[in-house]
Write a protein that binds this DNA or RNA. Structure first.
Lengths: 198, 198
DNA sequence: CGACGCGGAGAACGATCGTTCTCCGTGATG
DNA sequence: CATCACGGAGAACGATCGTTCTCCGCGTCG
Protein backbone atom coordinates (compact mmCIF):
# COMPACT_ATOMS: atom_id res chain seq x y z
CA UNK A 1 0.00 0.00 0.00
CA UNK A 2 2.58 2.51 1.04
CA UNK A 3 4.96 1.20 -1.59
CA UNK A 4 4.31 4.16 -3.81
CA UNK A 5 7.08 6.23 -2.23
CA UNK A 6 6.68 8.62 -5.12
CA UNK A 7 6.91 12.09 -3.64
CA UNK A 8 6.80 13.15 -0.04
CA UNK A 9 4.89 10.24 1.41
CA UNK A 10 2.12 11.95 3.36
CA UNK A 11 1.80 15.02 1.24
CA UNK A 12 4.40 17.74 1.32
CA UNK A 13 6.28 17.13 4.55
CA UNK A 14 8.92 19.73 3.82
CA UNK A 15 9.73 21.98 0.88
CA UNK A 16 12.73 24.16 1.79
CA UNK A 17 13.15 25.98 -1.49
CA UNK A 18 9.60 26.27 -2.64
CA UNK A 19 10.02 23.36 -5.02
CA UNK A 20 10.07 19.62 -4.85
CA UNK A 21 13.26 17.58 -4.69
CA UNK A 22 13.30 16.70 -8.37
CA UNK A 23 12.94 20.34 -9.34
CA UNK A 24 15.72 21.42 -7.03
CA UNK A 25 18.02 18.72 -8.38
CA UNK A 26 17.30 19.74 -11.94
CA UNK A 27 17.83 23.40 -11.09
CA UNK A 28 21.19 22.61 -9.56
CA UNK A 29 22.08 20.35 -12.48
CA UNK A 30 21.25 23.01 -15.02
CA UNK A 31 23.30 25.65 -13.26
CA UNK A 32 26.32 23.50 -12.52
CA UNK A 33 26.45 21.38 -15.67
CA UNK A 34 26.09 24.41 -17.89
CA UNK A 35 28.64 26.49 -16.00
CA UNK A 36 31.34 23.88 -15.49
CA UNK A 37 30.69 21.06 -17.92
CA UNK A 38 29.30 17.58 -17.41
CA UNK A 39 32.32 15.70 -16.14
CA UNK A 40 33.51 18.53 -13.93
CA UNK A 41 30.40 18.38 -11.75
CA UNK A 42 30.21 15.46 -9.35
CA UNK A 43 27.16 13.97 -7.74
CA UNK A 44 28.34 15.39 -4.43
CA UNK A 45 28.29 18.93 -5.81
CA UNK A 46 24.75 18.35 -7.04
CA UNK A 47 23.76 17.10 -3.64
CA UNK A 48 25.23 20.15 -1.90
CA UNK A 49 23.73 22.61 -4.37
CA UNK A 50 20.28 21.05 -4.35
CA UNK A 51 20.10 20.11 -0.69
CA UNK A 52 18.78 16.72 -1.71
CA UNK A 53 20.41 13.75 -0.04
CA UNK A 54 22.45 11.36 -2.11
CA UNK A 55 20.05 8.55 -1.37
CA UNK A 56 17.05 10.49 -2.62
CA UNK A 57 19.02 11.79 -5.55
CA UNK A 58 19.78 8.27 -6.69
CA UNK A 59 16.16 7.25 -6.24
CA UNK A 60 15.07 10.13 -8.48
CA UNK A 61 17.85 9.58 -11.04
CA UNK A 62 19.35 6.08 -10.92
CA UNK A 63 22.63 7.22 -12.46
CA UNK A 64 24.45 10.36 -13.42
CA UNK A 65 23.84 9.62 -17.07
CA UNK A 66 20.10 9.60 -16.49
CA UNK A 67 20.36 12.92 -14.68
CA UNK A 68 22.43 14.41 -17.48
CA UNK A 69 19.84 13.40 -20.02
CA UNK A 70 17.04 14.82 -17.87
CA UNK A 71 19.01 18.07 -17.63
CA UNK A 72 19.35 18.24 -21.39
CA UNK A 73 15.69 17.46 -21.96
CA UNK A 74 14.54 20.20 -19.60
CA UNK A 75 17.01 22.70 -20.93
CA UNK A 76 15.80 22.04 -24.46
CA UNK A 77 12.19 22.66 -23.44
CA UNK A 78 12.95 25.82 -21.50
CA UNK A 79 15.24 27.23 -24.15
CA UNK A 80 12.73 26.77 -26.94
CA UNK A 81 9.87 28.01 -24.80
CA UNK A 82 11.78 31.21 -24.00
CA UNK A 83 12.63 31.76 -27.63
CA UNK A 84 9.06 31.07 -28.76
CA UNK A 85 7.66 33.43 -26.13
CA UNK A 86 10.02 36.21 -27.21
CA UNK A 87 9.48 35.82 -30.94
CA UNK A 88 5.79 35.06 -30.55
CA UNK A 89 5.27 38.55 -29.16
CA UNK A 90 6.24 40.06 -32.52
CA UNK A 91 3.98 40.13 -35.55
CA UNK A 92 4.22 37.05 -37.72
CA UNK A 93 6.40 37.27 -40.79
CA UNK A 94 9.80 38.86 -41.28
CA UNK A 95 9.67 40.68 -37.99
CA UNK A 96 9.11 37.51 -35.99
CA UNK A 97 11.78 35.67 -37.93
CA UNK A 98 14.33 38.40 -37.28
CA UNK A 99 13.32 38.46 -33.61
CA UNK A 100 15.08 35.12 -33.28
CA UNK A 101 18.37 36.96 -33.65
CA UNK A 102 17.31 39.67 -31.22
CA UNK A 103 16.56 37.00 -28.69
CA UNK A 104 19.97 35.44 -29.27
CA UNK A 105 21.44 38.83 -28.44
CA UNK A 106 19.68 38.99 -25.09
CA UNK A 107 20.78 35.43 -24.36
CA UNK A 108 24.41 36.17 -25.23
CA UNK A 109 24.38 39.15 -22.89
CA UNK A 110 23.24 37.12 -19.90
CA UNK A 111 25.91 36.71 -17.24
CA UNK A 112 27.36 33.24 -17.32
CA UNK A 113 26.53 32.70 -20.99
CA UNK A 114 28.78 29.92 -22.16
CA UNK A 115 27.44 28.88 -25.54
CA UNK A 116 25.03 26.13 -26.46
CA UNK A 117 24.65 23.54 -23.72
CA UNK A 118 24.02 20.87 -26.34
CA UNK A 119 27.07 21.67 -28.42
CA UNK A 120 29.18 21.71 -25.27
CA UNK A 121 27.74 18.43 -24.03
CA UNK A 122 28.10 16.84 -27.44
CA UNK A 123 31.73 17.87 -27.66
CA UNK A 124 32.43 16.53 -24.21
CA UNK A 125 30.53 13.24 -24.18
CA UNK A 126 28.86 12.83 -27.57
CA UNK A 127 31.51 10.36 -28.68
CA UNK A 128 30.95 8.04 -25.73
CA UNK A 129 27.35 8.65 -24.71
CA UNK A 130 24.68 7.94 -27.32
CA UNK A 131 22.08 9.52 -25.05
CA UNK A 132 23.90 12.84 -24.98
CA UNK A 133 24.44 12.75 -28.73
CA UNK A 134 20.78 11.99 -29.33
CA UNK A 135 19.65 14.80 -27.01
CA UNK A 136 21.87 17.28 -28.83
CA UNK A 137 20.57 16.22 -32.21
CA UNK A 138 16.97 16.35 -30.98
CA UNK A 139 17.50 19.91 -29.75
CA UNK A 140 18.98 21.09 -33.02
CA UNK A 141 16.26 19.35 -35.01
CA UNK A 142 13.57 21.02 -32.92
CA UNK A 143 15.20 24.41 -33.35
CA UNK A 144 15.41 23.87 -37.07
CA UNK A 145 11.74 22.91 -37.26
CA UNK A 146 10.80 26.05 -35.36
CA UNK A 147 12.88 28.17 -37.69
CA UNK A 148 11.36 26.44 -40.72
CA UNK A 149 7.91 27.44 -39.46
CA UNK A 150 8.94 31.09 -39.17
CA UNK A 151 10.49 31.02 -42.63
CA UNK A 152 7.30 29.55 -44.08
CA UNK A 153 5.32 32.39 -42.49
CA UNK A 154 7.34 34.90 -44.47
CA UNK A 155 6.69 33.09 -47.73
CA UNK A 156 10.40 32.72 -48.37
CA UNK A 157 11.69 29.51 -49.98
CA UNK A 158 12.31 26.65 -47.59
CA UNK A 159 16.03 26.49 -48.21
CA UNK A 160 16.37 29.80 -46.40
CA UNK A 161 15.80 27.84 -43.19
CA UNK A 162 19.17 26.14 -43.45
CA UNK A 163 20.98 29.35 -44.24
CA UNK A 164 19.49 31.12 -41.23
CA UNK A 165 20.17 28.09 -39.07
CA UNK A 166 23.85 28.32 -39.94
CA UNK A 167 23.89 32.01 -39.04
CA UNK A 168 22.24 31.32 -35.70
CA UNK A 169 24.55 28.44 -34.86
CA UNK A 170 27.58 30.43 -35.90
CA UNK A 171 26.46 33.35 -33.77
CA UNK A 172 26.06 31.13 -30.70
CA UNK A 173 29.52 29.63 -31.11
CA UNK A 174 31.21 32.91 -31.90
CA UNK A 175 29.52 34.72 -29.03
CA UNK A 176 30.57 31.99 -26.62
CA UNK A 177 34.20 32.00 -27.72
CA UNK A 178 34.57 35.76 -27.97
CA UNK A 179 32.48 36.59 -24.94
CA UNK A 180 30.66 39.31 -26.86
CA UNK A 181 27.03 39.69 -27.92
CA UNK A 182 27.87 41.33 -31.23
CA UNK A 183 27.53 38.13 -33.30
CA UNK A 184 23.77 38.31 -32.75
CA UNK A 185 23.57 41.66 -34.52
CA UNK A 186 25.87 40.51 -37.28
CA UNK A 187 23.78 37.42 -37.82
CA UNK A 188 20.64 39.54 -37.93
CA UNK A 189 22.16 41.80 -40.58
CA UNK A 190 23.20 38.83 -42.69
CA UNK A 191 19.79 37.25 -42.22
CA UNK A 192 18.16 40.42 -43.48
CA UNK A 193 20.29 40.34 -46.61
CA UNK A 194 19.40 36.71 -47.26
CA UNK A 195 15.75 37.43 -46.61
CA UNK A 196 15.74 40.35 -49.02
CA UNK A 197 17.48 38.30 -51.68
CA UNK A 198 14.99 35.45 -51.37
CA UNK B 1 77.96 19.34 -19.20
CA UNK B 2 75.56 16.62 -20.17
CA UNK B 3 72.80 18.50 -18.41
CA UNK B 4 71.23 19.50 -21.68
CA UNK B 5 69.14 16.31 -21.89
CA UNK B 6 67.24 17.88 -24.72
CA UNK B 7 66.62 15.17 -27.28
CA UNK B 8 68.16 11.77 -27.60
CA UNK B 9 71.47 12.36 -25.85
CA UNK B 10 74.00 11.00 -28.32
CA UNK B 11 72.11 11.68 -31.46
CA UNK B 12 69.15 9.60 -32.50
CA UNK B 13 69.56 6.37 -30.57
CA UNK B 14 66.22 4.94 -31.72
CA UNK B 15 63.28 6.20 -33.73
CA UNK B 16 60.66 3.41 -33.97
CA UNK B 17 57.96 5.27 -35.85
CA UNK B 18 60.00 7.49 -38.11
CA UNK B 19 59.48 10.45 -35.81
CA UNK B 20 60.87 11.75 -32.55
CA UNK B 21 59.19 11.20 -29.21
CA UNK B 22 57.61 14.65 -29.05
CA UNK B 23 56.09 14.18 -32.48
CA UNK B 24 54.68 10.79 -31.61
CA UNK B 25 53.18 12.12 -28.39
CA UNK B 26 51.57 15.00 -30.21
CA UNK B 27 50.25 12.68 -32.91
CA UNK B 28 48.67 10.45 -30.28
CA UNK B 29 47.33 13.47 -28.42
CA UNK B 30 45.73 14.89 -31.51
CA UNK B 31 44.06 11.63 -32.42
CA UNK B 32 42.85 10.73 -28.94
CA UNK B 33 41.94 14.17 -27.62
CA UNK B 34 39.98 15.01 -30.74
CA UNK B 35 38.18 11.68 -30.90
CA UNK B 36 37.28 11.25 -27.24
CA UNK B 37 37.59 14.63 -25.57
CA UNK B 38 40.21 16.04 -23.24
CA UNK B 39 39.20 14.59 -19.91
CA UNK B 40 38.32 11.19 -21.34
CA UNK B 41 41.93 10.56 -22.43
CA UNK B 42 44.35 9.70 -19.66
CA UNK B 43 48.10 10.03 -19.67
CA UNK B 44 48.33 6.27 -19.71
CA UNK B 45 46.37 6.08 -22.96
CA UNK B 46 48.74 8.65 -24.46
CA UNK B 47 51.70 6.62 -23.32
CA UNK B 48 50.32 3.44 -24.86
CA UNK B 49 49.33 5.13 -28.13
CA UNK B 50 52.62 6.99 -28.53
CA UNK B 51 54.97 4.32 -27.22
CA UNK B 52 56.72 6.98 -25.19
CA UNK B 53 57.36 6.11 -21.58
CA UNK B 54 55.58 8.05 -18.86
CA UNK B 55 58.86 9.41 -17.57
CA UNK B 56 59.86 10.80 -20.92
CA UNK B 57 56.35 12.06 -21.55
CA UNK B 58 56.47 14.11 -18.37
CA UNK B 59 59.89 15.45 -19.25
CA UNK B 60 58.56 16.64 -22.62
CA UNK B 61 55.30 18.00 -21.17
CA UNK B 62 55.46 18.69 -17.45
CA UNK B 63 51.70 18.33 -17.01
CA UNK B 64 48.64 17.24 -18.90
CA UNK B 65 47.54 20.84 -19.21
CA UNK B 66 50.76 21.75 -20.98
CA UNK B 67 50.27 18.83 -23.34
CA UNK B 68 46.68 19.86 -24.04
CA UNK B 69 47.81 23.37 -24.93
CA UNK B 70 50.56 22.01 -27.17
CA UNK B 71 47.97 19.82 -28.88
CA UNK B 72 45.72 22.82 -29.48
CA UNK B 73 48.59 24.94 -30.77
CA UNK B 74 49.67 22.32 -33.26
CA UNK B 75 46.14 21.56 -34.36
CA UNK B 76 45.57 25.26 -35.00
CA UNK B 77 48.68 25.49 -37.17
CA UNK B 78 47.90 22.35 -39.15
CA UNK B 79 44.25 23.22 -39.63
CA UNK B 80 45.00 26.67 -40.96
CA UNK B 81 47.85 25.44 -43.10
CA UNK B 82 45.59 22.85 -44.72
CA UNK B 83 42.90 25.41 -45.35
CA UNK B 84 45.37 27.92 -46.76
CA UNK B 85 46.92 25.30 -49.03
CA UNK B 86 43.52 24.31 -50.39
CA UNK B 87 42.22 27.82 -50.93
CA UNK B 88 45.58 29.13 -52.09
CA UNK B 89 45.40 26.80 -55.08
CA UNK B 90 42.42 28.74 -56.42
CA UNK B 91 42.63 32.10 -58.11
CA UNK B 92 42.48 35.02 -55.73
CA UNK B 93 39.13 36.73 -55.34
CA UNK B 94 35.64 35.31 -55.05
CA UNK B 95 36.72 31.85 -56.12
CA UNK B 96 39.30 31.58 -53.39
CA UNK B 97 36.93 32.95 -50.78
CA UNK B 98 34.27 30.42 -51.71
CA UNK B 99 36.89 27.67 -51.69
CA UNK B 100 36.90 28.00 -47.92
CA UNK B 101 33.46 26.42 -47.86
CA UNK B 102 34.52 23.72 -50.29
CA UNK B 103 37.37 22.85 -48.00
CA UNK B 104 34.99 22.68 -45.05
CA UNK B 105 33.00 20.14 -47.05
CA UNK B 106 36.02 17.90 -47.53
CA UNK B 107 36.82 18.24 -43.83
CA UNK B 108 33.28 17.35 -42.76
CA UNK B 109 33.39 14.24 -44.92
CA UNK B 110 36.53 12.90 -43.29
CA UNK B 111 35.95 9.81 -41.17
CA UNK B 112 36.04 10.68 -37.50
CA UNK B 113 35.04 14.31 -38.04
CA UNK B 114 33.68 15.53 -34.74
CA UNK B 115 33.43 19.28 -35.11
CA UNK B 116 35.86 22.00 -34.15
CA UNK B 117 38.48 20.82 -31.69
CA UNK B 118 38.62 24.29 -30.18
CA UNK B 119 34.91 24.63 -29.66
CA UNK B 120 34.82 21.17 -28.10
CA UNK B 121 37.78 21.92 -25.86
CA UNK B 122 36.36 25.28 -24.89
CA UNK B 123 33.04 23.74 -23.98
CA UNK B 124 34.72 21.08 -21.91
CA UNK B 125 37.43 23.00 -20.09
CA UNK B 126 37.17 26.65 -21.13
CA UNK B 127 35.46 27.58 -17.88
CA UNK B 128 38.23 26.17 -15.71
CA UNK B 129 41.33 26.39 -17.88
CA UNK B 130 42.37 29.86 -19.06
CA UNK B 131 44.96 28.27 -21.33
CA UNK B 132 42.36 26.27 -23.22
CA UNK B 133 40.07 29.28 -23.48
CA UNK B 134 42.90 31.43 -24.80
CA UNK B 135 43.92 28.81 -27.36
CA UNK B 136 40.37 28.58 -28.63
CA UNK B 137 40.07 32.34 -28.95
CA UNK B 138 43.44 32.55 -30.68
CA UNK B 139 42.36 29.95 -33.21
CA UNK B 140 39.12 31.72 -34.01
CA UNK B 141 40.88 35.08 -34.23
CA UNK B 142 43.42 33.65 -36.66
CA UNK B 143 40.69 32.11 -38.78
CA UNK B 144 38.84 35.40 -38.82
CA UNK B 145 41.97 37.27 -39.89
CA UNK B 146 42.53 34.81 -42.72
CA UNK B 147 38.93 35.22 -43.84
CA UNK B 148 39.26 38.99 -43.65
CA UNK B 149 42.21 38.81 -46.03
CA UNK B 150 40.22 36.81 -48.55
CA UNK B 151 37.29 39.20 -48.27
CA UNK B 152 39.59 42.13 -48.87
CA UNK B 153 40.90 40.44 -52.01
CA UNK B 154 37.38 40.41 -53.45
CA UNK B 155 36.94 44.10 -52.81
CA UNK B 156 33.85 43.44 -50.70
CA UNK B 157 33.20 45.56 -47.61
CA UNK B 158 34.97 44.40 -44.47
CA UNK B 159 31.80 43.61 -42.56
CA UNK B 160 31.23 40.68 -44.91
CA UNK B 161 34.00 38.92 -42.99
CA UNK B 162 31.86 38.54 -39.89
CA UNK B 163 28.88 37.32 -41.85
CA UNK B 164 30.92 34.65 -43.60
CA UNK B 165 32.57 33.72 -40.33
CA UNK B 166 29.17 33.02 -38.82
CA UNK B 167 28.25 30.84 -41.78
CA UNK B 168 31.47 28.88 -41.48
CA UNK B 169 31.14 28.41 -37.73
CA UNK B 170 27.53 27.42 -38.06
CA UNK B 171 28.40 24.91 -40.76
CA UNK B 172 31.06 23.31 -38.57
CA UNK B 173 28.72 22.96 -35.61
CA UNK B 174 25.79 21.75 -37.67
CA UNK B 175 27.89 19.24 -39.58
CA UNK B 176 29.28 17.87 -36.33
CA UNK B 177 25.90 17.45 -34.69
CA UNK B 178 24.10 16.10 -37.73
CA UNK B 179 26.95 13.98 -39.00
CA UNK B 180 26.40 15.24 -42.54
CA UNK B 181 28.57 17.31 -44.87
CA UNK B 182 25.64 19.20 -46.40
CA UNK B 183 26.05 22.30 -44.19
CA UNK B 184 29.20 23.14 -46.15
CA UNK B 185 27.24 23.44 -49.37
CA UNK B 186 24.46 25.37 -47.70
CA UNK B 187 26.96 27.77 -46.21
CA UNK B 188 28.58 28.21 -49.61
CA UNK B 189 25.23 29.03 -51.20
CA UNK B 190 24.45 31.58 -48.51
CA UNK B 191 27.93 33.04 -48.81
CA UNK B 192 27.42 33.48 -52.52
CA UNK B 193 24.20 35.39 -51.90
CA UNK B 194 25.89 37.66 -49.38
CA UNK B 195 28.82 38.17 -51.73
CA UNK B 196 26.54 39.11 -54.61
CA UNK B 197 24.61 41.51 -52.42
CA UNK B 198 27.78 43.25 -51.21
C1' DC C 1 86.64 -5.20 -17.73
C1' DG C 2 84.11 -2.77 -14.04
C1' DA C 3 81.40 1.08 -12.43
C1' DC C 4 78.03 4.40 -13.55
C1' DG C 5 74.02 6.70 -14.96
C1' DC C 6 70.25 7.21 -18.16
C1' DG C 7 65.87 5.49 -19.62
C1' DG C 8 61.90 2.21 -19.75
C1' DA C 9 58.20 -0.57 -17.54
C1' DG C 10 55.10 -0.30 -14.44
C1' DA C 11 54.00 -0.13 -9.35
C1' DA C 12 52.73 3.24 -6.01
C1' DC C 13 50.42 7.31 -4.18
C1' DG C 14 46.99 10.58 -3.13
C1' DA C 15 42.93 12.59 -4.88
C1' DT C 16 38.46 12.29 -6.81
C1' DC C 17 34.49 10.14 -8.77
C1' DG C 18 30.10 7.37 -9.12
C1' DT C 19 27.64 4.49 -6.33
C1' DT C 20 26.28 1.95 -2.15
C1' DC C 21 26.00 1.10 2.72
C1' DT C 22 25.83 2.09 7.72
C1' DC C 23 24.17 4.43 11.38
C1' DC C 24 21.08 7.30 13.69
C1' DG C 25 17.21 10.52 14.58
C1' DT C 26 12.43 11.24 13.85
C1' DG C 27 7.70 10.99 13.05
C1' DA C 28 3.76 8.13 12.42
C1' DT C 29 1.17 4.07 14.18
C1' DG C 30 -1.04 0.47 17.42
C1' DC D 1 4.20 4.87 25.34
C1' DA D 2 6.77 1.39 22.52
C1' DT D 3 7.76 -0.01 17.72
C1' DC D 4 9.02 0.51 13.33
C1' DA D 5 10.09 2.03 8.87
C1' DC D 6 11.80 5.87 6.37
C1' DG D 7 14.97 9.36 5.20
C1' DG D 8 19.28 12.14 5.92
C1' DA D 9 24.29 12.64 6.71
C1' DG D 10 28.16 11.05 5.44
C1' DA D 11 31.53 7.05 5.59
C1' DA D 12 32.94 3.36 2.66
C1' DC D 13 34.18 1.11 -1.65
C1' DG D 14 36.18 0.17 -5.97
C1' DA D 15 37.71 2.35 -10.03
C1' DT D 16 40.35 5.74 -12.34
C1' DC D 17 43.23 9.69 -12.87
C1' DG D 18 47.49 12.70 -12.80
C1' DT D 19 51.87 12.37 -11.14
C1' DT D 20 55.97 10.35 -8.94
C1' DC D 21 58.97 6.65 -7.52
C1' DT D 22 61.33 2.13 -7.62
C1' DC D 23 63.68 -1.24 -9.80
C1' DC D 24 66.38 -3.03 -13.33
C1' DG D 25 68.76 -3.67 -17.87
C1' DC D 26 71.92 -1.77 -20.94
C1' DG D 27 75.03 1.15 -23.26
C1' DT D 28 79.09 4.19 -22.25
C1' DC D 29 83.39 5.58 -20.57
C1' DG D 30 87.64 5.27 -17.77
Amino acid sequence: MVLVQGEGGSGMTEAPAGEDAEGRVLDAAEELFYAHGLQAVGMDALRTASGVSLKRLYRLFPSKEVLVEAYLRRRDERWRAELAAYAGARPAGRERLLAVFDWLGTWFAEPGFRGCAFVNSFGELGASSPGVAAAARAHKDAFRRYLAGLVAETGAPAHLTDHLLLLAEGAITTAALSGAAAPAHQARQAALVLLDAA
